[in-house]
Write a protein that binds this DNA or RNA. Structure first.
Length: 353
DNA sequence: AAGACAGACAACCGCGACCGG
DNA sequence: ACCGGTCGCGGTTGTCTGTCT
């Protein structure tokens, strides 16, 4: 155990922060910035370790912190992103302007506690996917894997497998136990069982998924099996849009937004505002309001706010929407697709469970 | 009114990654 | 290449507060 190295040198205060301490920290950081956190407490006159100061600032004192309950849109976004990236709270938080990873983590955990306390209220099969965190149930993932594997090569299959097991982190096992039919839905409206919504980039080769988050990944070339770079998003009837997380952004992919309903102006404004922050791309993607889940509609709605420099006609021609409500994804389909200029495949909504 | 309980939130801890010497 | 310092992240625990009995 033992404290962090920065906390060993002096007697540091622990526990809740007093208003006086907050004031000292705010005053110091607003005038000097924080540069090196280990130096902050001493210079600010605080009996705290630098780590504690950093945490306090990031999670509570930062001026751009947004407090209060999560909106329905935020809740859905959290759920969707969690289905994609798992417990990478900082990653999720980067898509929620003003929210901290700690806040999101606490929110998620408290929701899980709820689920645990009310296990298996019902065993109806139809409730399986709605009771669990949407898009992340074993059933839906398994179905998805089963569906996707067939047409692809072994290499691609391996990529998808690894991707799903590593990046599409399932919720804690307890969730699965409790979700055997629990009727309680996620905080916001649950996503439908057909939520998996995958996009494959057939133009960008990637290294094994373990390095997905590394920008260097994009430089690895896997001959002829460019494949899975991302991602699952969710869709339902609600007015919310989804976008690619940074781990995809970092791979140099064209930014894409999948709007599944039409975001209200208010929300759009909110996300546009966020574009000025640390995640302009994502925020821009979210700001892109509009209609259905296909590029064409996005394009028609309004000038694409999502990375306009990235989302132009040229990149558009590399997109292929695949809504297999009507058509199965088969080897021949895939082959045909690969032979064209299309480089992105959106897939969904599927309901093969 | 008081105790039990649960939820929300704040903070700590340990670990891994990164970076500079 | 190695090592120590620092930072960031995720997991966990502690505390406060509101609600229920």
């Amino acid at each position: 155990m033992g404290h962090h190295s920065c906390c060993n040198q002096q007697k540091v205060k622990r526990g809740l922060w007093s208003p006086e301490e907050d004031e000292k920290l705010i005053r110091y950081i607003t005038t000097h910035g924080y540069g090196c956190w280990s130096e902050v407490p001493e210079k600010a006159g605080l009996q705290r370790c630098g780590k504690s100061c950093r945490l306090r600032w990031i999670n509570y004192l930062r001026p751009d912190i947004r407090r209060g309950r999560f909106t329905a849109e935020e809740e859905k976004l959290i759920i969707s992103l969690h289905a994609i990236v798992g417990n990478r709270w900082a990653h999720i938080a980067s898509h929620l302007p003003g929210r901290t990873d700690n806040e999101i983590k606490n929110y998620w955990n408290s929701w899980i506690k709820k689920k645990i306390r009310k296990p298996a209220m019902s065993t109806t099969s139809s409730s399986v996917t709605t009771a669990s965190p949407p898009c992340s149930t074993v059933a839906s993932d398994a179905a998805l894997v089963g569906h996707l594997q067939t047409p692809f090569s072994a290499a691609a299959e391996h990529q998808l497998d690894a991707f799903l097991s590593q990046s599409l982190a399932l919720p804690p096992p307890k969730m699965q136990v409790g979700s055997g039919g629990g009727q309680e839905s996620p905080p916001a409206a649950p996503l439908p069982p057909h939520c998996p919504f995958f996009m494959f980039d057939t133009s960008v080769s990637v290294s094994p998924p373990s390095s997905l988050t590394s920008p260097a990944a994009a430089t690895h070339q896997l001959p002829h099996h460019p494949f899975l770079t991302f991602t699952a998003a969710a869709m339902d009837d609600s007015p919310i849009s989804y976008h690619l997380p940074p781990l995809v952004d970092s791979m140099g992919m064209a930014m894409a937004a999948m709007d599944c309903g039409g975001l209200g102006e208010e929300s759009r404004g909110h996300y546009r505002e966020a574009a000025g922050n640390n995640n302009g791309q994502a925020a821009a993607g979210m700001a892109n309001g509009g209609g259905g889940c296909c590029y064409g509609q996005i394009k028609e709605q309004e000038p694409p706010a999502l990375g306009q420099d990235q989302w132009d006609d040229e990149s558009a021609q590399h997109l292929l929407m695949w809504d297999d409500d009507d058509q199965e994804l088969t080897p021949s389909n895939l082959e045909a697709m690969e032979s064209t200029a299309h480089s992105l495949l959106f897939m969904g909504p599927n309901d093969h469970a």
